[in-house]
Design a binder for these strands. Structure first.
Length: 553
RNA sequence: GCGCCUGUAGCUCAGUUGGAUAGAGUGACGGACUACGAAUCCGUAGGUCGCAGGUUCGAAUCCUGUCAGGCGCACCA
């Protein structure tokens, strides 16, 4: 990437300045190159002279001068100047932009991807919705964020595995089963005896109805408890299938569906508890077994095994993370909703107790989603009178808009999702703005083909692209690799939507200022190459957020 | 009471890890199709970066305090 080349130029000059004794500093700082906001300040700038001023005991402009005198100027550097308080500004010649365009059109679907593997094996665990009912819109956000993050990490050169943790054990499962049993009895004529904290959703009736349809009153004589066990085992699979289908409709797939129950059955949970005890991290008090999470920064110790002998969800979760560690990932990423943030400290404490390396578990907390319709908040589904489900949202606004909207905001800010806006096919809707740019380019390329024109191959006269709109677009396209790397490093897929809007905007501007297919064949061919490169970049970045790149709309 | 997140244009939000004159979209107003997609583009207007201190060459960004909103503080998951 160009900024790395420039950083090296500055760093080399700095090295020479120090060697010659002209500049006295103890340590050379990491040279950072940034894009100035103001176009008049050149294409790239370094602030290294300002950083060094204090230590060197001379003014930043003096230091900048010293560096400037020693800096190399390869052909792609048109000009280096000092400005303001001591910024070193680079103006680049256009050749590097043409090289970037050629790279896009050579690397194709791989443009923007890292050429070097990181050597990391990263596991991303996300959604992990309880299999006791339909997913809500919040789950959709974690699905979009988690899947895009996985794609980003892959592009950044890591090996990635996606995992869904199935909470198929514990009170909620019993409760779920009991709720189905109550509905089952009701359907067969008995009065409704829903458990106090039972599930009230209509889908429970649907599930019970299915059992009635298939097996009739076969189970009616069983006790309430037995019915519950039987039905929960049977119904959760059904719900899980439903979850899977909904996620697939979002183009989100998992490499592994990990069962909590399996941890109990395999003895891994007991093993983990024994391990913690052997390490001296647990103790008995008030009839329960506790983990000393306060030793690792939690504000109170946490129960592992209840007074009644049942392990807590936390205990199972520790066994689960131990299992992950043993599978050999170099990094674990969990994506949780904001309603679980209170759980972070104890989980990190447990990781430390397990002897995991600090930082090996990253927990991303996503803030919650609120639904709106034309600016008015909605909580309930019109159809069912219950929570709006992810499935309904997908059916209503479509996969592309759902994924795009879920990635329009930083993960740590609350998200307002306006259904009417997502459905609208107008300028207000950024999904269409970006997709329109892609479709428009495809249309131009089709039009060109009808006139026997094709984008220039490599070695064509790209230097004809010197209109300011062309150069601005080229500059933006050339940034894709660093945008992608930064988004991956910051676990911030939402930056991709911003970038897409910038690229699409610059393309539309270019389109209005520069006629692509014209009588000037050479210029047409060069501009078609620019169109083709833009199309490729939009397509690649859309893939990273899981949104389609339509050729027609 | 404690912890996490968030306060930036009328509205919804960016702001690339501390840089130069804080940016988009939308809404409002005014313009641009006899040629490649007007789902587009151009122009105008709009700011005490919640508030008060501090750190330094330099702060929307870091620190402290404070106000406001969201979420959470289980032997639930």
């Amino acid at each position: 990437m160009i900024e790395h080349k420039l950083a090296r130029l500055v760093d080399d000059a700095l090295g020479r300045a120090v060697e010659s004794g002209r500049l006295k500093i103890a340590r050379r700082p990491i040279v950072e190159i940034a894009r100035p906001h103001e176009k008049g300040h050149g294409d790239w700038a370094s602030n290294v002279a300002l950083i060094l001023a204090k230590e060197a005991g001379v003014g930043p402009r003096v230091i900048a001068d010293i560096i400037l005198d020693r800096i190399e100027r390869p052909p792609y550097v048109a000009d280096v100047t000092i400005a303001g308080p001591g910024f070193i500004n680079f103006r680049l010649s256009n050749t590097w932009l043409y090289e970037a365009l050629t790279a896009i059109r050579t690397q194709r679907d791989r443009y923007g991807w890292s050429e070097l593997p990181t050597g990391e094996r990263i596991q991303v665990e996300f959604v992990s919705a309880n299999p006791v009912g339909p997913m809500h819109v919040g789950h959709g956000r974690w699905a979009a964020v988690g899947d895009s993050l996985a794609r980003l990490l892959l592009a950044a050169g890591s090996e990635v595995q996606r995992e869904f943790y199935i909470n198929d054990w514990g009170n909620q499962m019993l409760n779920f089963g009991a709720s189905v049993a109550a509905r089952y009895r009701e359907l067969l004529g008995a009065p409704l005896e829903l458990p106090e904290d039972g599930y009230r959703g209509h889908y429970i009736i649907d599930i019970a109805q299915e059992i009635v349809d298939k097996d009739g009153d076969k189970y009616l004589d069983l006790g309430f408890e037995q019915q519950g066990k039987l039905f929960s085992a049977r119904a959760y699979k059904q719900v899980l299938e439903h979850i899977k289908k909904t996620l697939e409709a979002m183009d989100v797939t998992f490499d592994c569906w990990f069962s909590e129950r399996a941890l109990h059955d395999s003895g891994e949970l007991d093993e983990t508890l024994a391990l913690l005890e052997a390490g001296g991290y647990s103790y008995r008090a008030d009839g329960a077994l506790w983990l000393r999470t306060t030793d690792f920064g939690d504000d109170k110790d946490r129960v592992l095994v209840r007074e009644n002998g049942e392990p807590t969800y936390f205990a199972a979760d520790i066994a689960y993370h131990r299992d992950k560690i043993r599978r050999g990932y170099t990094k674990l990423i969990d994506i949780w909703g904001a309603d679980h943030h209170g759980y972070v400290a104890r989980m990190q404490a447990a990781m430390a107790a397990l002897g995991a390396e600090p930082g090996s578990l990253e927990i991303i907390i996503g803030q919650l989603v609120s639904l709106y319709s034309g600016g008015r908040p909605i909580k309930m589904s019109k159809r069912t009178g219950e929570m709006v489900t992810l499935e309904e949202l997908l059916a209503e606004v479509g996969k592309d808009a759902v994924r795009y909207f879920f990635l329009m905001r930083g993960t740590d800010t609350a998200l307002d999702f306006d259904i009417e806006l997502a459905k609208s096919e107008t300028a207000e809707n950024p999904v269409y703005y970006v997709q329109y740019a892609h479709a428009r380019i495809c249309s131009i390329l089709r039009h060109a083909a009808e006139n026997d024109l094709a984008p220039a191959g490599t070695g064509a006269d790209l230097a004809l692209l010197d209109h300011q709109a062309e150069l601005a677009l080229l500059r933006e396209l050339a940034e894709a690799p660093s945008v992608i790397m930064r988004a991956a490093a910051n676990r911030a897929p939402y930056r991709l939507t911003k970038y897409l809007q910038d690229v699409a905007g610059l393309f539309h501007q270019f389109y209005h200022q520069c006629r692509v297919v014209s009588d000037d064949e050479k210029l047409s061919v060069a501009r078609l190459a620019l169109c083709d490169g833009t199309r490729q970049v939009i397509k690649n970045v859309l893939w990273l957020i899981g949104v389609s790149a339509p050729e027609k709309m």
